Amino acid sequence: MIKVEGLTRAYGSFIAVDDISFECRPGTVTGFLGPNGAGKTTTMRVMVGLTPPTHGDVTIGGLHYKNIPNPGRHVGVLLDASAQHAGRTGREVLEIGAQTMGLPGQRVDEMLDLVSLDAREAKRRVRNYSLGMRQRLGIAHALLGDPSVLILDEPANGLDPAGIRWMRGLLKGYADQGGTVLLSSHLLHEVEQIADEMILIGNGLIVARGTREELLRDATGGVATTLVTALDNHQLTEALTEKGLPVHPAGAGLRVNAEPVDVGRVAAERQIVLTDLRAGNEGGLEDLFLELTADTQRDTLPDEATSEVPA
């Protein structure tokens, strides 16, 4: 478990992280989300002893990182994939890590295979790696000691779509086996697909936290909405209205103030064929994220960029 208590990190008069507290539990993936410069990396650097806190405390498994014996066997860390020694080969990077942790040499081959770096790529100098390859090598190094905790800062940077899907599966499987994962990113869509809980940070402050469903509920004021399209939208409108469910036109379909299961049940009862049925608050989480971190965004979005888009 990772436990952050009243953590503050100041640089002179600038407060990078401002009195934040949260926990990451075993068997879960926690998404740590915020714009660039929100305080995510600073928090992670404090976690692994690279930056001292100004106030507060961070423990991993009840210990400060510096007090964990052979920490690589307990905590896997990837903060900067480009920080690896450029003159070494990928295999050498992992071999040195294995020797430092007292691991058998075969563990290097297992990790290279896990992250899909083949024998030819493993012999190349890191300076000749693409960013995506460096990310894979960094993930391999983080997993080398078979740790119970993973702390990863922007691990999807540089990965292609197939690589991002691979990483999602890898981290979800790791958590399913009891591991604790803290995953930082500014890519909300990628993290929400695997995170059990999300923590939104802006200007060094936690501005929201919870599961995807809890955050969506907050984003829509607790009102469930559904987007639905039928072969006969008029017939579906009448059926839903009779059940007391408010219906509004939305593009080629309808927006209903109800859960998708309730809309589907009404359609099934009336034998109405649906061609589309989905939660209508899909943009709610992104809208909430942008709203809560608006004062830290570098770009000003036009009004229509955050307005509701019909289906």
Score class of each variant (00 low, 15 high):
94 L>H: 00
54 T>F: 10
106 Q>K: 13
20 I>Q: 03
75 V>K: 04
186 H>G: 00
207 V>P: 07
147 P>R: 03
43 T>G: 00
181 V>T: 02
76 G>Y: 02
153 D>F: 04
75 V>S: 05
215 L>E: 14
194 I>Q: 00
277 L>T: 11
236 L>S: 03
140 A>W: 12
93 V>L: 00
26 P>I: 01
243 K>G: 06
224 A>K: 13
26 P>R: 05
159 L>Y: 06
80 D>L: 07
185 S>W: 11
237 T>E: 11
76 G>V: 09
88 R>C: 06
281 N>C: 13
208 A>V: 01
308 E>W: 14
62 G>T: 11
309 V>Q: 15
140 A>S: 06
167 M>Q: 03
269 E>Q: 11
297 Q>C: 09
198 M>Q: 04
158 G>L: 08
227 L>Y: 05
66 K>D: 15
179 G>Q: 06
239 A>P: 06
209 R>M: 10
197 E>R: 15
296 T>H: 12
94 L>G: 00
284 G>M: 13
238 E>P: 09
20 I>F: 02
4 V>T: 10
176 D>S: 10
144 L>N: 07
253 G>T: 01
117 L>Q: 01
289 F>T: 12
222 G>R: 14
305 A>S: 14
130 S>I: 05
251 G>F: 01
216 L>E: 14
122 A>P: 14
97 G>P: 09
17 V>N: 11
275 T>K: 08
99 Q>I: 04
187 L>R: 09
154 E>Y: 02
170 L>A: 03
274 L>G: 09
136 R>L: 00
67 N>A: 15
213 E>Q: 15
146 D>V: 07
180 T>R: 14
146 D>P: 05
307 S>P: 10
152 L>A: 01
95 E>V: 05
211 T>W: 15
157 N>T: 08
73 R>Y: 12
27 G>W: 01
109 D>R: 07
111 M>P: 03
240 L>W: 12
306 T>L: 14
147 P>A: 00
206 I>S: 03
165 R>L: 07
121 E>L: 06
84 Q>W: 11
207 V>Y: 03
152 L>S: 01
275 T>L: 04
103 L>V: 09
124 R>K: 11
129 Y>L: 04
288 L>F: 05
296 T>Q: 13
30 T>F: 05
194 I>K: 02
268 A>E: 13
93 V>A: 04
53 P>S: 13
213 E>M: 14
137 L>S: 02
183 L>P: 14
13 S>T: 14
251 G>H: 02
266 V>M: 08
16 A>M: 07
97 G>K: 04
